[in-house]
Simulated scan of single mutants.
Amino acid sequence: MGTWGIGSFDNDDAADFMIDVLDSGDLSLVREVLDNVLTSTEYVEAPDAALAIVAAEVVAAGRGRPTLAAQQEEGLADWLARIRPSIDADLVAQARQALTRILADHSELRELWEETEDSHDWQAVVTELRGHLDP
């Protein structure tokens, strides 16, 4: 995975996923990647985690609580205005649970970030995003 920063959208997987989301007409891709993280039996793979973080950004933005990164993500606000997705409490809870799993043990992405000097900053970004999903 090509990564150029600690932000949710700062990697190749995220960029490719956003293209797919913005080409879609609903939240099915968002639901799918969140489900991948939540149903992984023991270990959350890094690519799944990276996509779930972006999916959580979409959920937070869709419920009117976008992070600064989501506000700056080209096309996201227009897509949300056009699609007007229904963000129910279950989807918000799934996004929050996925982020909790990504920050916990048995997360490849967390382990990869722990090998860098940016680990604490990355964890702060994900934790802040999780806060945008609070009730």
Rank of each mutant, 00 (worst) to 15 (best):
V58K: 02
A55T: 03
I6A: 09
A52C: 04
L76S: 04
I102T: 03
S40H: 12
I19C: 12
E111Y: 05
G25Q: 05
Q97S: 15
S28L: 07
W4R: 04
G62Q: 13
E32K: 13
E111I: 00
I19E: 14
I102Q: 02
Q71N: 15
T41W: 14
M1Y: 08
T116Y: 05
A14L: 12
L99P: 05
T116F: 06
S8R: 01
S8V: 07
E128A: 10
Y43E: 01
A104L: 06
W122G: 11
V21L: 02
L29Q: 10
G25C: 01
A61I: 09
V125G: 04
L22I: 03
G131L: 02
G62W: 04
V37D: 04
V54Y: 09
D118N: 13
Q72L: 13
D13A: 11
E108V: 10
V59L: 14
N11Y: 02
D118Y: 14
L129F: 09
A49C: 11
E57K: 02
D105Y: 11
E108Y: 07
P135K: 08
D13R: 07
P135H: 05
V33Y: 12
I102P: 01
V125M: 13
G5C: 09
L133K: 10
W122S: 08
Q97Y: 06
L91T: 12
F9M: 02
S28C: 01
L27T: 04
D48I: 01
D26M: 08
E45P: 01
L129A: 10
I87N: 09
A50N: 02
S86T: 14
A55G: 13
L133V: 03
W4A: 09
D13G: 11
G64D: 14
S24L: 07
E57V: 02
G131V: 06
L34A: 10
L133I: 05
G131Y: 03
P66Y: 01
L34R: 07
L51V: 00
A77I: 13
V126F: 02
L129N: 07
D23A: 12
V33N: 12
I83W: 03
Q94G: 11
A15D: 07
G2S: 15
F9S: 05
T3S: 08
R65M: 15
D16H: 10
D48K: 11
A104K: 03
T3Y: 02
W4G: 00
Q97G: 10
I87T: 15
T39G: 11
L27F: 06
P135W: 01
E117H: 10
T3L: 03
A15L: 14
E74L: 13
A93Y: 00
L109I: 09
W79D: 00
R63V: 13
P66I: 01
Q123D: 03
S8M: 00
S28Y: 07
E115Y: 06
T67N: 06
E32I: 08
D90N: 11
E128V: 00
A93T: 02
N11I: 07
E57N: 03
D78T: 10
E73C: 12
D121H: 12
W4T: 00
V44T: 08
N11H: 15
A95E: 10
L76Q: 03
P47F: 11
I6Q: 04
V21A: 00
R110M: 09
R130H: 07
E115P: 00
V92C: 06
L22C: 02
G62A: 12
A89W: 14
D88H: 15
A104V: 01
A124E: 15
L91E: 11
G64C: 15
L91K: 13
E32S: 13
S28P: 00
A52F: 01
T3P: 03
D121K: 13
A50Q: 02
